[in-house]
Amino acid sequence: MAFTAFSTGTATEQGPRKSSRIALLLLLPGVLYLMLFFLVPLVSLVITSLQAPLELGDIGQYQAAFRWENYATVIGQYGEQILRSFLYALLATIFALLFSYPLAYFIGVKARPWPLLQNLMLVLVIAPFFISFLLRTLAWKQILSDESPIVTGLKALSLLAPDAYITGTPIAVVFGLTYNFIPFMTLPLYAALERLDTRYLEAGSDLYAKPFTTFRTVTLALSMPGIVSGVLLTFIPAAGDYVNASRQFLGGSGTAMMGNVIESNFLVSLNYPAAASLSIILMAAILVLVTAYVRRSGTEDLL
């Protein structure tokens, strides 16, 4: 090992100065791509978010301006929906983690002696992706509808009030978010746990640690990169999701999330500045939350 490391070291010693132009050239497509498809839309979004309505203009007519009040207006008007988005996303992330961890642990650690079972279970986790996400969500809407066996059954067991319902409530939305993002949580967790060296666990018990202590100090600590990427992969899209909470799917008028507010302002009210400033707020809030989270969990190298 030391030998190869040494040899590559000497090879690159003369390399850099000569190949720096080539490296730049190789970077060019990526940089151009980012400029064209990320930076330009982002700048256009910022410009739109600062537009002011055209005086005596028609619906959807705006002019270039520097109306930063747009941000204050949307926060005042949609503060509730903004907070709700992050709350739902947080709940969905926690539930997905609680559900996925034992599952990933079983597939990655317990099922190791039976590779066939391991592969089969992985396929089962990924299989839902073969069907459109919209169709699966619509199917849940049917399953949870008022006259469905689940709801009538819960009512018969008096677990649900006679006039209660599930679709169109926050429960349905958080359920939908959790369900839809479980694979994104399970796969990174599996990848981390699959590499877990079980000899560490044996060492833990040899040193008289209780099973829980071993789990906390060994398993959990070693699977932390998986948890962090799983949480990011779940939380970020869940906060911006507008399908589950939409009135057409599992939500109702009391469950609107930021994505729904942006959609309605953009497509129906044609209030482009409001939609743009909400998008930027969503982006900035996620960036801040994610940075704080990654800092706290001590895995800056992941970014």
Binding site: D58, I59, Q61, Y78, Q81, R247, A256, S264, S269, N271
Partner: peptide
Amino acid sequence: DGQEESEYNAAFQAVLLGS
């Protein structure tokens, strides 16, 4: 007219979004 359309649309959408 354009003004009415903006105003009434916004009022109706506000109810739909629960705001």
